[in-house]
Protein backbone atom coordinates (compact mmCIF):
# COMPACT_ATOMS: atom_id res chain seq x y z
CA UNK A 1 0.00 0.00 0.00
CA UNK A 2 2.97 2.34 0.27
CA UNK A 3 2.83 3.50 -3.36
CA UNK A 4 -0.87 4.00 -2.90
CA UNK A 5 -0.43 6.11 0.22
CA UNK A 6 2.22 8.05 -1.65
CA UNK A 7 -0.33 8.72 -4.41
CA UNK A 8 -3.36 9.42 -2.24
CA UNK A 9 -1.80 11.67 0.37
CA UNK A 10 -4.08 13.10 3.03
CA UNK A 11 -3.90 16.56 1.43
CA UNK A 12 -5.14 15.11 -1.87
CA UNK A 13 -7.96 13.18 -0.23
CA UNK A 14 -8.96 16.30 1.67
CA UNK A 15 -9.03 18.51 -1.44
CA UNK A 16 -11.02 15.82 -3.24
CA UNK A 17 -13.60 15.71 -0.47
CA UNK A 18 -13.71 19.46 -0.09
CA UNK A 19 -12.45 21.16 -3.24
CA UNK A 20 -11.44 24.81 -2.67
CA UNK A 21 -12.62 27.62 -4.96
CA UNK A 22 -15.15 25.21 -6.41
CA UNK A 23 -17.68 27.47 -8.05
CA UNK A 24 -18.41 29.53 -11.08
CA UNK A 25 -16.72 32.93 -11.03
CA UNK A 26 -18.97 35.85 -11.80
CA UNK A 27 -17.11 38.44 -13.83
CA UNK A 28 -14.40 36.06 -15.02
CA UNK A 29 -12.14 37.40 -17.76
CA UNK A 30 -11.05 34.00 -18.98
CA UNK A 31 -12.87 30.70 -19.06
CA UNK A 32 -11.41 27.48 -20.37
CA UNK A 33 -12.76 23.96 -20.46
CA UNK A 34 -10.57 20.93 -20.00
CA UNK A 35 -11.62 17.45 -21.05
CA UNK A 36 -10.10 14.06 -20.53
CA UNK A 37 -12.29 12.22 -23.02
CA UNK A 38 -10.85 8.84 -22.14
CA UNK A 39 -11.70 9.22 -18.45
CA UNK A 40 -14.75 11.41 -18.65
CA UNK A 41 -13.02 14.04 -16.49
CA UNK A 42 -14.20 17.54 -17.25
CA UNK A 43 -13.32 20.85 -15.63
CA UNK A 44 -14.08 24.50 -16.28
CA UNK A 45 -11.55 27.03 -15.08
CA UNK A 46 -12.34 30.70 -14.38
CA UNK A 47 -9.74 33.45 -14.15
CA UNK A 48 -10.21 37.06 -13.14
CA UNK A 49 -7.29 39.24 -14.17
CA UNK A 50 -6.11 42.51 -12.78
CA UNK A 51 -3.48 43.66 -15.26
CA UNK A 52 -1.09 40.75 -15.48
CA UNK A 53 -2.13 39.37 -12.11
CA UNK A 54 -4.52 36.48 -11.39
CA UNK A 55 -6.76 38.26 -8.96
CA UNK A 56 -9.23 35.40 -8.57
CA UNK A 57 -9.35 31.78 -9.71
CA UNK A 58 -12.05 29.14 -9.45
CA UNK A 59 -13.14 25.92 -11.08
CA UNK A 60 -16.00 23.47 -11.48
CA UNK A 61 -16.16 19.96 -12.81
CA UNK A 62 -16.16 16.23 -12.29
CA UNK A 63 -13.26 13.86 -12.13
CA UNK A 64 -11.17 11.49 -10.08
CA UNK A 65 -9.56 12.41 -6.77
CA UNK A 66 -6.27 13.25 -8.47
CA UNK A 67 -7.78 15.60 -11.05
CA UNK A 68 -10.10 17.37 -8.59
CA UNK A 69 -7.41 17.77 -5.92
CA UNK A 70 -4.94 18.97 -8.53
CA UNK A 71 -7.39 21.62 -9.76
CA UNK A 72 -8.25 22.66 -6.20
CA UNK A 73 -4.62 22.99 -5.11
CA UNK A 74 -3.76 24.77 -8.35
CA UNK A 75 -6.35 27.47 -7.76
CA UNK A 76 -4.79 28.14 -4.36
CA UNK A 77 -1.27 28.12 -5.74
CA UNK A 78 -1.80 30.55 -8.62
CA UNK A 79 -4.05 33.11 -6.97
CA UNK A 80 -2.31 36.47 -6.78
CA UNK A 81 0.48 35.22 -9.02
CA UNK A 82 1.29 36.91 -12.32
CA UNK A 83 0.53 35.05 -15.55
CA UNK A 84 4.25 34.41 -16.07
CA UNK A 85 4.65 33.05 -12.56
CA UNK A 86 1.68 30.75 -13.14
CA UNK A 87 3.24 29.49 -16.37
CA UNK A 88 6.51 28.77 -14.59
CA UNK A 89 4.62 26.86 -11.93
CA UNK A 90 2.85 24.89 -14.63
CA UNK A 91 6.16 23.82 -16.14
CA UNK A 92 7.55 22.85 -12.74
CA UNK A 93 4.43 20.90 -11.87
CA UNK A 94 4.64 19.01 -15.16
CA UNK A 95 8.25 18.05 -14.42
CA UNK A 96 7.25 16.89 -10.95
CA UNK A 97 4.45 14.54 -12.03
CA UNK A 98 6.41 13.25 -15.01
CA UNK A 99 9.19 12.36 -12.59
CA UNK A 100 11.64 14.42 -14.66
CA UNK A 101 12.96 16.51 -11.82
CA UNK A 102 12.26 15.17 -8.35
CA UNK A 103 14.11 17.95 -6.49
CA UNK A 104 11.69 20.47 -7.96
CA UNK A 105 9.22 19.41 -5.24
CA UNK A 106 11.12 21.73 -2.88
CA UNK A 107 9.95 24.79 -4.84
CA UNK A 108 6.35 23.74 -5.04
CA UNK A 109 5.00 23.98 -1.53
CA UNK A 110 1.78 22.03 -1.09
CA UNK A 111 1.84 20.94 -4.73
CA UNK A 112 4.71 18.60 -3.79
CA UNK A 113 2.08 16.08 -2.65
CA UNK A 114 1.67 15.14 -6.31
CA UNK A 115 5.19 13.69 -6.51
CA UNK A 116 3.68 10.21 -6.06
CA UNK A 117 1.82 10.51 -9.36
CA UNK A 118 5.03 9.85 -11.30
CA UNK A 119 4.84 6.23 -10.09
CA UNK A 120 1.45 5.89 -11.82
CA UNK A 121 2.00 6.87 -15.46
CA UNK A 122 -1.67 6.40 -16.41
CA UNK A 123 -2.65 8.97 -13.80
CA UNK A 124 -0.35 11.74 -15.02
CA UNK A 125 -3.03 13.10 -17.31
CA UNK A 126 -5.43 13.30 -14.36
CA UNK A 127 -2.96 15.42 -12.42
CA UNK A 128 -2.21 17.71 -15.36
CA UNK A 129 -5.75 18.27 -16.66
CA UNK A 130 -6.30 21.44 -14.62
CA UNK A 131 -2.89 22.76 -15.59
CA UNK A 132 -3.47 22.17 -19.30
CA UNK A 133 -6.74 24.01 -18.88
CA UNK A 134 -4.90 26.85 -17.17
CA UNK A 135 -2.52 27.02 -20.09
CA UNK A 136 -5.45 27.28 -22.50
CA UNK A 137 -7.00 30.04 -20.39
CA UNK A 138 -3.74 31.99 -20.28
CA UNK A 139 -3.16 31.60 -24.02
CA UNK A 140 -6.65 32.74 -24.84
CA UNK A 141 -6.24 36.41 -25.66
CA UNK A 142 -9.88 37.00 -26.41
CA UNK A 143 -11.93 37.66 -23.34
CA UNK A 144 -14.43 34.87 -22.92
CA UNK A 145 -18.02 35.84 -22.31
CA UNK A 146 -18.70 36.62 -18.70
CA UNK A 147 -21.16 34.27 -17.14
CA UNK A 148 -24.19 35.48 -15.28
CA UNK A 149 -25.65 33.55 -12.45
Amino acid sequence: MSDLQELYQEVILDHNRHPRNFHRLAGADRIANGDNPLCGDQISLYLKLSGNKLEDVSFEGTGCAISIASASLMTEAIRNKTCDEAKLLLEQFRKLVMGEEVAIANNLGKLAVFAGVSEFPVRVKCATLAWHTLNAALENRIAAPVTTE
Binding site: M1, D3, L4, L7, Y8, R17, L38, C39, G40, D41, T62, G63, C64, A65, I66, I68, F120, R123, C126
Partner: peptide
Protein backbone atom coordinates in the same frame (compact mmCIF):
# COMPACT_ATOMS: atom_id res chain seq x y z
CA UNK B 1 -20.82 7.13 -3.97
CA UNK B 2 -18.29 9.95 -3.88
CA UNK B 3 -15.46 7.89 -5.38
CA UNK B 4 -14.43 8.23 -8.99
CA UNK B 5 -14.10 4.98 -11.00
CA UNK B 6 -10.48 5.80 -11.83
CA UNK B 7 -9.56 5.89 -8.18
CA UNK B 8 -11.34 2.57 -7.73
CA UNK B 9 -9.31 1.16 -10.64
CA UNK B 10 -5.97 2.37 -9.26
CA UNK B 11 -6.58 1.01 -5.76
CA UNK B 12 -7.81 -2.35 -7.08
CA UNK B 13 -4.76 -2.59 -9.34
CA UNK B 14 -2.59 -2.42 -6.23
CA UNK B 15 -4.51 -5.51 -5.08
CA UNK B 16 -3.78 -7.30 -8.37
CA UNK B 17 -7.36 -6.82 -9.57
CA UNK B 18 -7.84 -5.65 -13.17
CA UNK B 19 -11.12 -3.92 -13.94
CA UNK B 20 -12.07 -1.24 -16.45
CA UNK B 21 -12.86 2.29 -15.36
CA UNK B 22 -14.24 4.84 -17.78
CA UNK B 23 -17.02 5.13 -20.31
CA UNK B 24 -16.32 1.74 -21.94
CA UNK B 25 -16.56 3.28 -25.41
CA UNK B 26 -20.29 3.58 -24.80
CA UNK B 27 -20.83 7.22 -23.92
CA UNK B 28 -24.56 7.29 -24.81
CA UNK B 29 -25.15 4.74 -22.04
CA UNK B 30 -23.21 6.84 -19.53
Amino acid sequence: AGIHPHDIGTVLDQEGIAIRAGHHCAQPIM
